[in-house]
Design a protein around this nucleic acid. Structure first.
Length: 507
RNA sequence: CGGGGUGUAGCGCAGUCCGGUUAGCGCACUGGUUUUGGGAACCAGGUGUCGGAGGUUCGAAUCCUCUCACCCCGACCA
């Protein structure tokens, strides 16, 4: 048997996927656990990814007419109580502020004091507090539509946390809009879902499936919830973004009313939509390999690392001069309409170590520049979408001339790889036995990576959804828009069905 | 929140069952020498309130009680 090739990340995806994920987060220096239960520290490299996500999305929202605003972190308990389903959905995971000060406890410590008359809830989502403002802001049909977004942190007291995927506190954006008609609100809900899908596919290079959530998976208080679902490399689904049509539920509980053209008062129609730092989890699990993080160039904090390779101080000086020539030529180039970000790793680690460091952090392009390259006016290029040792020499000015195409190609390759993976692991299944087999690992003790997306018929009943969940831990991810309605029989009960849905295990 | 597991140096771990020199190993780190185009070698060195709090004991990383955190599997969820 061939000797196992050394990988930068151990264990590999196949050996232990969950542990591999944690290693990527650690080794790529994205985030770490803090001393606060369930809360993470996002490190500079990870935060830079989030900043890029913010930049791009913010621009996309604004071009749809959405404006940013900011609402309080604290929500009075009474606001929460107004929407019954909403309370049910979030009550079990709320952090509650009940006191306003700390006092000397006489033993060198502190005790809490100043009990509040009404407890405040640290926002798990802001529908109710934003609704309170909206009810004041909206008076006339002329005030509509009202399109607001907030970049914020929210707290959900999760019992089981995982860095980026589910943390007690996370960063996100939440869009909240108000409309005069049902149709307009529904159109907005879908429009924002389209924005998310475009963002995921074009920037994160993560192919997603848009669709509607089943009733059981709906946002508490929503009339309809739409999601984008992505496949991770362990073949599980990750919900990467949601957009909710809230009907008049929240308008009624928050008294968001407007006067129509006839002077009559009507309840407005609202939507909300959000994506979170979970997207970074999606990014990691969709693309990274056994050597570390793989970043799509369009979202990477930097595009190129240049590693000088010098034997003597004098060589080093000359090589750095040569590198300066390359970087200043690159300054005139644009990728995705933006400046190309270059890191020159002049630290005194060995070239091998530096090389691997940047592989692990997912840098799209590595340029190794030594005396040989300098003399031949070349650079030695490694790409993160290729194998670590699959590197080639090219003239430095050719590199500068084609850098944009190279980055585009890396972006496209990463996307294509993820799309191919999803296709390979998406099956149309009409036979129940096959369906159960698809979702059952061969080894029960240490389940191997198995399953995927099953496109199967579903009659629409909660009972069938529940049964499959209980038997296989498989849920309906969404009812995809892209699948046309089609006659068939429910994979569970055999009754008539008009539509296939995506079944999958999920995060 | 239920079941299981783990906390010993920055990271990975041994030592714990059966208490007993100064708590150890590998990697990383610091200094030096030789190296240098693919995760360098050798020499020297620093690093720990053994997760925390109590208790038992002449003596606790080791035994007991409580507690906290993390990981895995559930339930819940973005």
């Amino acid at each position: 048997m061939a000797k196992k090739q050394r990988t930068a990340i151990e264990p590999t995806r196949n050996e232990d996927y969950a542990e591999w994920y944690q290693q990527i987060v650690r080794v790529a220096e994205l985030a770490e656990n803090s001393d606060v239960r369930g809360c993470m520290v996002i490190k500079p490299w990870g935060y830079a990814i989030w900043e890029n996500i913010q930049k791009v999305l913010d621009k996309m929202f604004k071009s749809e007419g959405v404006k940013n605003a900011y609402f309080p972190l604290f929500i009075p308990k009474s606001y929460f109580e107004k929407e019954a389903e909403h309370v049910d959905g979030f009550a079990k995971e709320c952090a509650v502020v009940t006191h306003s000060k700390l006092e000397d406890d006489g033993n060198g410590g502190l005790k809490v004091g100043g009990e509040l008359t009404e407890p405040y809830i640290v926002r798990p989502t802001s529908e109710t507090i934003i609704g309170a403002s909206f009810s004041k802001w909206v008076n006339s049909y002329r005030d509509l539509p009202l399109l607001i977004n907030q970049w914020a942190n929210v707290v959900r007291w999760e019992l089981r946390t995982r860095l980026f995927l589910r943390t007690a506190e996370f960063l996100w954006q939440e869009g909240h809009t108000v409309h005069a008609s049902r149709d307009e609100a529904e159109a907005e809900t879908k429009l924002m879902l389209d924005v998310y899908a475009k963002f995921a596919e074009v920037y994160l290079a993560v192919p997603v499936i848009k669709g509607e959530k089943s009733e059981g998976e709906r946002f508490p208080g929503a009339v309809a919830t739409y999601s984008i679902e992505a496949m991770m490399q362990d073949k599980k689904a990750l919900q990467a973004g949601t957009s909710h049509f809230l009907g008049q539920n929240f308008a009624k509980s928050s008294e968001i009313k407007y006067q129509n053209k006839d002077g009559e008062y009507e309840y407005a129609w609202t939507t909300s939509w959000g994506v979170s730092t979970r997207l970074i989890g999606a990014l990691i699990m969709a693309h990274s390999d056994d050597n570390g993080l793989v970043l799509p160039p369009k979202i990477a904090p930097a595009h190129i690392v240049i590693i000088p390779i010098a034997k003597t101080d004098q060589d080093r000086e000359e090589i750095l001069e040569y590198i300066k020539k390359i970087t200043s030529a690159l300054q005139n180039k644009r990728f995705d309409g933006k400046e190309i970000i270059i890191e020159v790793d002049d630290s005194d680690a060995t070239s091998g170590e530096k090389n691997w460091k940047w592989i692990k952090r997912g840098m799209p392009i590595r340029l190794e520049v030594g005396k040989r390259d300098m003399e031949s006016e070349s650079v030695f290029m490694g790409r993160r979408d290729l194998e670590p040792r699959d590197k080639k020499t090219l003239k430095w000015n050719d590199f500068v001339d084609t850098v944009e195409e190279i980055l585009e190609e890396i972006q496209a390759n990463i996307y294509q790889k993820a799309l191919d993976f999803r296709k390979e692991n998406t099956l149309i299944i009409d036979n129940q036995e096959e369906f159960y087999k698809f979702f059952t690992p061969e080894s029960k003790k240490k389940p191997e990576i198995h399953g995927g997306f099953a496109l199967a018929h579903w009659c629409g009943s909660v009972e069938c959804e529940e049964k499959i969940k209980e038997d296989l831990k498989v849920t309906i991810r969404n009812i995809p828009f892209e699948l046309d309605s089609e006659q068939g029989n429910c994979i569970c009960c055999g009754k008539e069905s008009k539509q296939r849905v995506i079944f999958s295990k999920s995060y």
